[in-house]
Amino acid sequence: MRDTRSSRILFQIGAILFALIITTLVLFLAGAQPFAAYKYIVLGAVGSWDVVTNVLVSWVPLLLATSGLLVTFTVGLWNIGIEGQITLGAIFTTWAMRLLQNSGWNPSLILVIAMLAGILGGLLWALLAGALKTFGGVNEIFGGLGLNFVATALNIWLIFGPWKRPGVASMSGTLPFDRSLWMPIAVGSSRLTPATLVIAIVGIIAVYAMIEGTYFGLKLKAVGRNPKSAYIMGIPTWQHMMASFAICGVFAGLAGAVQVTAVYHRLIPSISSGYGYLGLMVAMLVGYKASLAAPVALFFAALNVGSIQLPIILKLDSSLAGVLQGTLVLFVILGHGVRAKLLKKTKVSS
């Protein structure tokens, strides 16, 4: 086999087909009609302006998380801790909003400060993971996982403790902010916020431009490919790793800030909505290429939103979307592995 563009695409298509076959099998086993299920997922994601806006609402934090992860993946880091970084972003945002909500300041100004606070929260939590890795020798996967648990515990403690509603500790989160402090919603929609959409799109373009078009991006890639040679070439390795953590933290913090200011309008226990883990899947699926991140994240968001139709119409569990997403990633990575092996064989035999 030759390493051509067409063979690569062939393997990708094969992976998608396999994922569909497996998901279809799961549907069959569940006693459901697979084609009806797919139809309703599609309708649930693009069938009306309302659901399209819901997909976009879900796309924004997912794309932000993915954008950040592309940077850490570029230097070869598995920033599992992104969930915690999103949570800390949300916590810092809520904190700023709580401090300023009765200040009488202009709501736009409060929102901007709250977003910046979110960035700071994500950044600090990411730097902590980075410091554990760089100075403590703790693998970023384990450090990140640990920090995720701490972030969740902190979040729940705040919701059930110091930030609880008057007299009531509720799983539904802290008291919602006044409508004047909600991120402005587009006319004709009940939840689409154009400002966050712009932030996410600008974000992914910036990451693409940085990785593909700057000297800094090139150095990140060099560290990612081979840290030792990069170091010998004079690229300070750990500084670049820390920088990538910091950038990812900024994006994660923004995602958390969006969840608070534009989606839930309060802090809730599962404020990250799992977008960090989903972002990891998107990044893996696109082979860490920024150019593909936006459409694939959109596809994942559409699957998530569309799959809500499954329990409503077909009485199926909506976790089917997760099955499809998971198998997709699995088969694409498997496809990469098989192809690499075949290429090696071809090389050896020729």
Partner: peptide, 20 residues
């Protein structure tokens, strides 16, 4: 609830029913 259906809001789920 946000633990079982992450990323969704209850009002959004209500709207899904209105769509039906």
């Amino acid at each position: 609830n946000s633990a079982d259906r992450p990323g969704t809001t209850v009002s959004q789920l209500g709207e899904s029913l209105v769509a039906q």
